[in-house]
């Protein structure tokens, strides 16, 4: 059974002119456990929306998203939150660390919504991403590369089955981007987590064995282009 299976997924937005606009129409997509897949796409092709739908942050208008056999959108919002906390790790382009919390607290905070806070494991993760000397630093005291490392540790804190990474290297220079990508991929592998990464940077995408163009998956984009 696939870890992630998407069928006839549709998401529409209401435009300012009060018209329904289909931003995402993915007939099928799937990922196996521990698989690492990159999705490429230009800005506005619905990459972030796609990840938000998989994470249960947004609700789909139609279709199914099965994560390890559970249809996300048949769950109540509270259960979706719980599932997201327990099974999905999320790495953002701008890292989204909470500024009032230290690195260690940022990692532990993620744990508190999932299976529970494990300070030792949180420390281990920070050591793994090379932040052993910065555990009690606040995000503002870190470089962007260091912040991304903390974000990686936080995403893996609840031993998720799937890590979603939304342009995780978008704010980093080329050298740091390569380092960050390597770290994300290795850390996911070590934690037996599948990785779905979206980016528009071909330099990053080329590093993946499985790379798909979201535009080819998304009928909505294709039809828009045709129109």
């Amino acid at each position: 059974m696939a870890l992630l299976e998407i069928k006839q997924l549709k998401k529409r937005y209401r435009t300012p002119e009060n018209k329904l606009h289909t931003v995402l129409d993915v007939p099928a997509f799937q990922m196996e456990a521990e698989q690492q897949v990159a999705l490429c796409g230009e800005s506005g092709t619905g990459k972030t929306t796609f990840l938000h739908l998989i994470a249960g942050i947004l609700s789909a208008d139609e279709g199914e998203i099965l994560l390890d056999g559970t249809d996300l959108h048949k769950l109540s919002e509270a259960n979706r939150d719980r599932l997201r906390a327990n099974q999905i790790g999320y790495i953002f382009q701008t890292f989204n660390l909470l500024q009032g919390y230290t690195c260690l607290e940022n990692v532990m905070l993620g744990m508190s919504f999932g299976p529970g806070v494990d300070k030792d494991y949180a420390s281990q993760l920070l050591i793994r991403v090379g932040m052993q000397d910065r555990m009690h630093h606040y995000p503002r005291q870190l470089s962007t590369g260091q912040q991304q490392r903390v974000a990686v540790a936080r995403a893996l804190a609840n031993r998720p089955k799937l890590v979603l990474a939304d342009e995780p290297t978008g704010n980093l220079d080329n050298t740091r981007a390569e380092e960050a990508l390597h770290l994300i991929r290795e850390a996911c592998k070590e934690n037996k987590a599948a990785l779905l990464l979206v980016s528009h940077d071909w330099h990053i995408l080329n590093a993946f064995e499985h790379c798909q163009d979201l535009a080819s998956l998304n009928k909505a984009t294709r039809e828009e282009k045709r129109a």
Binding site: A78, D81, A85, N86, N96, G100, G110, F113, N158
Partner: peptide, 16 residues
């Protein structure tokens, strides 16, 4: 709002 959104993305429910 952003902090709340981050917390929600980490799995915090609306009730929390």
């Amino acid at each position: 709002k952003r902090d709340i959104a981050i917390l929600r993305a980490l799995g915090a429910g609306r009730r929390v």
